[in-house]
Simulated assay, not measured.
Amino acid sequence: MRLFTFISLALVVVCTAGCGGSSAPPAPGAGAVTVTPSAAPAGPMFDTLEYANWKRFPVGTTVKRKSVTSTERSTNKVTSVNTYTLRTVGADVVEVTRQNTTDRGDGTAPAVNPGETNRFNRQFAIPNGMTADDFNKPSRKAKVVGEEEMTVLGKKYKTTVYSWSDSTEAGPLEVKLWLSEEMPGRIVKQVMKQSTLANTTSEDVVEVTVP
């Protein structure tokens, strides 16, 4: 489901750090990759936020976001760049590709991962037991903590700031997220802190191309 997008990213970060006993910092996860909810139709139709956002831009629009993960337990910093490109825009669906390149900062060659395609439907039926408000937020636990104007690559964006805490197998995870409908993909900035593992992951937009 879309509302679990950012939590899923956090869990990827935690698992990468906590599984296998490695002292190196974790590789950032998918970042902005979102998937359209797949639950069986059950209730009123909901206008998918990702579809509405990407539909504002012309085909070929590209945004790059860079995540940097650091930890107090290692001098290495993991850098991951996700490139999102709007491929098609239809009356009921948009397609966005994502390509990831990750540099673990340990002297090995950066991993250039194959691309993938995400499809966002214009609408979906809200599952039983959930409300539209659940899908208007990045997480059911997320709370709006303010609004902030941020300058990215010389352009100002009006953002809504969300904050929440999640429990993971490795301990509490604190997430802060800046979203703007004026930004392709909506994410302007994201910061996640895992105190138990002493990890901090910061994700920022580093390039935006609109044909």
Rank of each mutant, 00 (worst) to 15 (best):
5 T>C: 02
5 T>H: 09
7 I>P: 03
8 S>P: 02
9 L>K: 05
10 A>I: 00
10 A>R: 08
12 V>F: 08
15 C>E: 09
17 A>S: 13
20 G>N: 05
20 G>T: 04
20 G>M: 09
22 S>I: 01
24 A>Q: 03
26 P>H: 15
32 A>V: 02
35 V>C: 09
35 V>D: 09
36 T>W: 03
36 T>R: 02
37 P>V: 00
43 G>D: 07
47 D>N: 13
48 T>A: 09
50 E>N: 08
53 N>F: 00
57 F>L: 09
59 V>H: 01
60 G>T: 04
63 V>G: 07
64 K>W: 11
70 S>D: 15
72 E>Y: 06
72 E>A: 15
72 E>N: 10
73 R>Q: 08
75 T>H: 11
85 T>V: 12
88 T>G: 00
90 G>V: 02
91 A>R: 06
92 D>M: 09
93 V>E: 15
97 T>L: 01
97 T>Q: 12
98 R>W: 04
100 N>H: 12
102 T>C: 03
104 R>M: 04
104 R>P: 00
107 G>L: 12
107 G>Y: 00
109 A>K: 15
116 E>V: 13
117 T>C: 03
118 N>L: 09
120 F>W: 07
122 R>Q: 07
123 Q>R: 06
123 Q>H: 02
124 F>A: 02
136 N>W: 01
141 K>P: 01
152 V>G: 07
155 K>P: 11
155 K>L: 06
160 T>Y: 01
161 V>W: 11
161 V>M: 03
162 Y>E: 10
164 W>P: 02
164 W>E: 05
168 T>V: 08
169 E>P: 05
172 P>Y: 00
172 P>S: 15
177 L>H: 07
177 L>F: 13
181 E>P: 04
183 M>I: 03
185 G>T: 02
185 G>S: 03
189 K>W: 02
192 M>P: 06
193 K>S: 10
197 L>I: 11
198 A>V: 14
200 T>V: 13
204 D>P: 10
205 V>R: 01
208 V>S: 07
210 V>H: 09
